[in-house]
Amino acid sequence: MSGDETIERRRESNGMPRLRIVAPAAPAPPVRMRPGGAPKPRVLAALRRRVEAIERPRLAGTGATALSLGVAAIDRALPDNGLRPAGLHEFLGTGGALALVAALAGRRLAQGAAGPVLWCLERGLPYPPGLAAFGLGPERLILARAREGRDVLWAMEEALGSGRAALVVGETRRLDWTASRRLQLAAETSATPALLLNDGADAGAAAAGALTRWRVASAPSGPAAHGPGIGAPRLALELLRARGATPGAWLIEWDHATHTFSLVTLLVDRESEPAATPNRRARA
């Protein structure tokens, strides 16, 4: 591939993927290689920048608002000051991950995105009253039940490709590299966020194509308003992988009254112990 071109994959109206070569707005500087030798560090840096430019398509230009959890500390850790809306993000976990995804979808609708949230799944349905408590009401939530994982991926890609959904959620364990890459491209092309929920125990080889990958777990709740009892739900959030971001871990708390997350500051300094999970620290 010549350095002067980027490749954009589009889905045509007939549903067939097609490759289209488009010229970038500004021509990139030529790259010279020393015959037989290692490329200069300066050249490597230029190449990296260019790869990055290809991989990070025009976010600034589209004026798209990043999908934020509303927790400044987490947004700051991400290269786009939040989750990039035109992309695929993967969430490992069960109930906590479900709630987090619902909250993200609710925030996306609150940002003014048109269309419904399309939630594609394979097995049991989420419980709508529970999702509503995390800010995702039933009026704009369309559930699509599929018989098998392949159909979940197909439905997600269709929904992304149509560009009519505000956000697309998929619950599946079956996701290989190619599938995640396809979803990422579809999300990128339509500037629609795609959130993957993966409750599989063995999620090691999953969604390599996703922009970010998180593990979400329910954590012991905050102090109850009165008496012993259960307080506001807390989630242990771990950023496992993200392009251009440092992995990190946070403990957040959901406020049912204001429908917002807030960061829970623990006594142990997070910076000094970046690798520890909030769970362990909470117990320490």
Partner: peptide, 8 residues
């Protein structure tokens, strides 16, 4: 909304 209901 005052009732605690599960997500699943």
């Amino acid at each position: 909304g005052g009732l605690a209901r599960p997500v699943r």
